[in-house]
Amino acid sequence: MIKVKLFATFRNGREKEIHFEYYEGITGREIIEKLGIKEEEVAIFIVNGRDKKWDEPIEDEATVSLFPPVGGG
């Protein structure tokens, strides 16, 4: 199982937390495709708090967090 957490405007029309069945080799790119989010809409894509490349496989039980361009303070 992979937990995907969505933030800011990615929550519009979607649940804020979505679970995906794990399979070997699943990548960030596949996950956002399933969510209908385009790569260029994502500013921060982290897996367990660490940066990852879109085509790197994600491990089972991981938490994926996705943010659009957001802000500072």
Binding site: T9, A43, I46, S65, P68, P69, V70, G71, G73
Partner: peptide, 22 residues
Amino acid sequence: GITGEGLPTYGTAVLVNIINEH
């Protein structure tokens, strides 16, 4: 994206989740 959308929509508070997730 940050000054045109993120900050106008959520204010600086948008950072709470970003910083926590890291």
